[in-house]
C-alpha cells in the first residue's frame, strides 16, 4: 500500500501551521492552532486507513471495495472531543478577556517575582538572613 501523497501533504501543512500558532501568546491564536493541529491529525488517520473505497455497508458495497471503517470511527470520536475542548478554550479565553481585557497567557507568578527581584537587586525569600551576618 502506498499512502495518498496529497493527504500526507495536507496533514503536514495543517500540523505545521497548527504548531506555529500554538507558540503564540494569545489564547485565541492558540485555539486556532489546536483546531488546525487536530484536523491535521484527523487527516493522518485517513492516510492510516489505507486505500479509498466505497461506504463499508453490507449489501451496498462489495467487501473487497470497502474502505476501512475503523479509522473513520476514530476520527469521528477525535472530532467530537476536539469540539468539546475548543468550546472550553473559547470559554476560557472569554473569561480571561472579561477579567483582564485581553487573553494573553501570563507568566508564572514565581517567574514574575524572580524578574522583579532581579530588577530590584534583592535576595531570594528563602535566602537565610543569619548566614549573612556570620563572619
Amino acid at each position: 500500500m502506498s499512502p495518498n501523497l496529497t493527504l500526507v501533504l495536507v496533514s503536514g501543512v495543517l500540523v505545521a501551521t497548527g504548531v506555529a500558532l500554538l507558540l503564540e501568546r494569545t489564547l485565541t491564536r492558540v485555539l486556532v492552532g489546536i483546531v488546525l493541529l487536530g484536523n491535521g491529525i484527523n487527516v493522518l488517520f485517513l492516510v492510516a486507513g489505507g486505500r479509498p473505497g466505497g461506504a463499508p455497508i453490507l449489501g451496498v458495497t462489495r467487501a473487497e471495495d470497502m474502505s476501512d471503517p475503523l479509522p473513520q470511527a476514530m476520527v469521528l470520536t477525535a472530532i467530537v472531543i476536539t469540539l468539546g475542548m475548543v468550546a472550553f478554550i473559547l470559554a476560557l479565553a472569554y473569561r480571561s478577556w472579561q477579567l483582564d481585557g485581553h487573553d494573553e497567557v501570563q507568566d508564572d507568578v514565581e517567574d514574575r517575582r524572580i524578574v522583579r527581584r532581579a530588577e530590584l537587586d534583592e535576595t531570594s525569600a528563602s535566602y537565610d538572613d543569619d548566614a549573612r551576618e556570620a563572619p
Binding site: L70, M74, L92
Partner: peptide, 21 residues
C-alpha cells in the same frame, strides 16, 4: 494546563494514527 494537556493528547493521537497505519 489545558494547552499543555491538549498538546500531549495530540501527540498521543498522532502515535495512535501511525500505529494503526
Amino acid at each position: 494546563y489545558v494547552v499543555v494537556s491538549l498538546l500531549s493528547s495530540m501527540v498521543f493521537l498522532t502515535a495512535i494514527a501511525l500505529i494503526y497505519a
